[in-house]
Nucleic acid binder design. Structure first.
Lengths: 346, 346
DNA sequence: TACAGTAGCTGAAACGGTTCAGCAACCGTA
DNA sequence: TACGGTTGCTGAACCGTTTCAGCTACTGTA
């Protein structure tokens, strides 16, 4: 079967014109006469020509018409994180303006498969979204010599950067609890490196821990820090139950995400500890569910959508300007949103 | 500035080998001697060669290494719909196996811009996700003569199809209310066509309306159908308030999405109508928030993630098999999840 | 020493377009 | 009639790879 693919050359031949004219008929119709254009289009139709091959056009013109998005975690997992949709919404807003496509690059179990995908992506630039330090995919992206914009982490990337001041944001949450009078404050943390002992460090975890420590001052107690993996309610629930069962349980909990905070609330309910009178909980992200939780969650709001939009806009801008540009650094504001899940220790 | 791009030819020259060998050194290292491979890699390093150009490779090999995803609505809006993340999670699961990239194709204000993006996408196939009938982007995708899989709608697509039986699912929700004894049942519906009077029909809306009618039987009253646009709580809230203010208000509401149902719950609260004792509400989708709503929402669960996974798997399969295949039709099961938002009329 | 077999390299032909210099034909004007 | 100016078409170069037929040089065996 598989009859030969129809090429522009075939169309030109059938229409009785040169391939050059045939190409114009599709790409720059104003350059050819009506007569030629119609003949070409008719021939294309008769032959079932699917239109100029994108790959070939790309090769010649040098523009891919898409930007690549490199995520931290497995792609599938990424879509369980409530922070992703607003971020992607922001990115979408920007690429609809261009307009340009968005290529999601999945992670893969094998590290080298993953970097291969980065090397082979047909894109004009990359957004690196919250990726650990020393991730080989970032190096692969940089090696492509295309414009790259980093979001959230890695912190030290030699590219334009868009993010928040995680340390200050975490500090504000901790100070809030401290101001209420809490002395025993536990922390539900993300992992600090992706695999134990690896160099794949997650900068924002480190930053936020530092911020919590800043804000808690002498109330900071490393023994009350629990690492939750993955970022889901269940591990947080388990960790919280464990904390509550201790001889002198914490009176407040700082969670690095709302998701973790939800797990904590769940555990408190199960254990019969009323929130906020006996236990205060602070989240991070201000996801849509936070306001509707019971009790409504006190949390640190950060502008996910804005991050996505700015990152994509900066990238598109860099692509259009032809790349080179000194690394800029955009830190967006965060805000502590005080709701019903925090109160003085009771 | 802009020193000339480094090509494989330059690397070969520097390493003192033919371009053929240089190509092998990258792509099929087992075919060249260690000596050549090392010389090539060293030369590449010295010259700052970013690796074989993906566009050129694609042209030559004929594989794009990515699949395209065509959404119904503006991309940005799409990420406000809670059904999208699980769907994308399913797609991600499948493409991580391959592995292959996922190109999101944004809609654009101008219709022709949008179809241009479809025509120019460097992909091996398309997933059409919940797109209206006669959408020109679907035609553009079909014209590419690449494998296409349709999800949800358009219903009549001449491609493999993955979806649910929307009519039966809606009927089950309506029958539930009917079984509880409700006589006056309102419906919060999606729009039926994208623009008023256009031929861009949304099949699932039509199907679900038919299902509601089936299930309600003689209790079906077209005057109690309200169209909510967009799919967001606010329009549903407004419509519900309006319904509740009528002389003889409905005792139950069928909503085409949980999002709409949430708006209805909100309105009921505002209007002082207790749910479920004075007003029953049924949603659709069983989104994560449904179980935690107050009261917990009775809703029709549908397997979004499964849809995404199956669609992507079928597409990848078709691509690997070289395309041709008779259109299959996969209808996934739905389930009415009865929670606390429905009760006999009181 | 002769010869078959193998490993490794070269060179050129695709892949399917876009772009552009150059040319032919035609127009209007003096 | 001569001539500058348009308009529209052709043909070929080029984009940067991969692939493969064919060649060379070497290895091992009889």
């Amino acid at each position: 079967m598989a009859e030969r693919r129809v090429r522009l050359r075939d169309v030109a031949e059938r229409a009785g014109v040169s391939v050059g004219s045939a190409s114009q008929a599709f790409g720059r119709p104003e350059l050819v006469s009506d007569d030629v254009r119609e003949r070409v289009l008719a021939a294309a139709h008769e032959l079932g020509y699917p239109g100029p091959d994108p790959a070939a056009r790309r090769l010649r013109t040098g523009r891919a018409g898409a930007i690549g998005l490199i995520f931290s975690e497995r792609l599938a997992y990424q879509f369980t994180d409530p922070a992703s949709p607003p971020f992607l919404r922001g990115v979408s807003l920007a690429i609809q303006q261009a307009p340009t496509g968005l290529l999601l690059i999945p992670d893969s179990r094998q590290r080298d498969e993953a970097t291969r995908l980065v090397r082979e992506a047909v894109v004009d630039g990359f957004i690196v979204y919250s990726v650990p330090q020393n991730d080989p995919r970032v190096e692969a992206a940089l090696a492509r010599r295309l414009p790259v914009v980093t979001v959230d982490q890695p912190r030290g990337a030699e590219t334009p950067f868009v993010g928040i001041d995680d340390r200050a944001a975490a500090r504000s949450a901790a100070e809030h609890l401290r101001g209420l009078g809490h002395e025993r404050v536990a922390v539900l943390s993300f992992v600090t490196t992706l695999e134990p002992g690896s160099t794949l460090q997650l900068d924002i975890t480190v930053e936020r821990l530092a911020g919590y420590e800043d804000g808690l001052g002498d109330a900071w107690d490393p023994a009350l820090v629990r690492t939750c993996r993955p970022n889901a309610p269940e591990p947080a629930r388990a960790a919280t139950l464990e904390l509550l069962r201790e001889p002198s349980p914490p009176t407040a909990i700082l969670a690095m995400s709302d998701i973790l905070a939800f797990g904590a609330l769940e555990a408190a309910g199960e254990h019969g500890v009323p929130v906020p009178s006996k236990l205060s909980v602070v989240g991070f992200d201000d996801t849509p569910g936070a306001a509707h939780a019971t009790p409504p969650l006190t949390t640190v709001a950060q502008p996910h959508e804005e991050k996505g939009r700015l990152a994509a806009e900066q990238l598109i801008d860099a692509i259009e300007r032809g790349g080179t540009r000194e690394p800029s650094r955009t830190l967006l504001p965060t805000e502590l949103v005080v709701r019903g899940s925090t109160a003085p220790p009771g």
